[in-house]
Every structure is written in structure tokens, then in C-alpha cells.
């Protein structure tokens, strides 16, 4: 059994971030893309908390407060945009939202 060190937390956080990034790149549904974005935010909070814990400071933890606030605001606005978009175009598939292209 391994002892969890800072590196383990960072690896985990990086993997989470990468998965979120993958979701943003590869999924077509706007809601899932949004969730993947949130996943990336959570990954960054994990890294911050880990740094904070292993460096015995509080700053990382305080930053997580801000990230949580931003995330909440972002979700509210983002979902409102998605709803407005759906009302206009009746789809959530991002590659069908290409009115500027044509």
C-alpha cells in the first residue's frame, strides 16, 4: 500500500483535469461539455488543497473558496445561456449551433 504524497494528489488532479478536457473536446452535448468544464475546475481545487496541505499554508484553501464561488456563478450563467440557446435553436448539440458559419 502506498502512502499518499503530494505527487499522488497532483497526478490524480492532472488526470481529472485531462478527463475533463477530453470531455470538452470530444462530446457534442453542451450540458456534458459544461459538466466536463466543472470537472476541470474541481481538479484544480484538488491540486490547490493538496498544495495547501503539504505546504502548511491556508492560501490554497482560501483560493478554493473563490473557485467555488466562481463555479457557482459560472454554472448559473452558463445554464441560463444553454436554456436561452435551446429556446432559440431547439438543440443542445454544439456542432449544430453553427449559424455563424453558414
Amino acid at each position: 500500500m502506498i502512502t499518499a504524497t503530494l505527487d499522488h494528489y497532483l497526478l490524480l488532479s492532472a488526470a481529472l483535469f485531462a478527463l475533463g478536457f477530453l470531455g470538452v473536446l470530444l462530446r457534442r452535448n453542451a450540458l456534458v461539455i459544461f459538466m466536463s468544464l466543472e470537472l476541470m475546475l474541481v481538479a484544480s481545487t484538488l491540486a490547490l488543497v493538496a498544495f495547501s496541505r503539504f505546504n502548511r499554508t491556508l492560501d490554497g484553501n482560501v483560493f478554493v473558496f473563490f473557485i467555488l464561488t466562481v463555479a457557482a456563478a459560472e454554472v448559473a450563467v452558463g445554464l441560463a445561456i444553454i436554456v436561452a440557446l435551446f429556446r432559440q435553436r431547439h438543440t443542445l448539440q454544439v456542432d449544430e449551433l453553427n449559424a455563424l458559419k453558414h
Binding site: 457534442r28 450540458l31 459538466m35 454554472v75 436554456v83
Partner: peptide, 17 residues
């Protein structure tokens, strides 16, 4: 998220881009 999913209804299309 769940609220919006339910409000807008599920979309049965291909999931990957």
C-alpha cells in the same frame, strides 16, 4: 444540471464529436 436536463429533455443523438 439535472433540472436543466429535465427541462430541455434528453437528446438521442450521437454523443461524440
Amino acid at each position: 444540471f439535472l433540472f436543466i436536463v429535465m427541462l430541455l429533455g434528453p437528446q438521442g443523438r450521437a454523443a461524440w464529436r
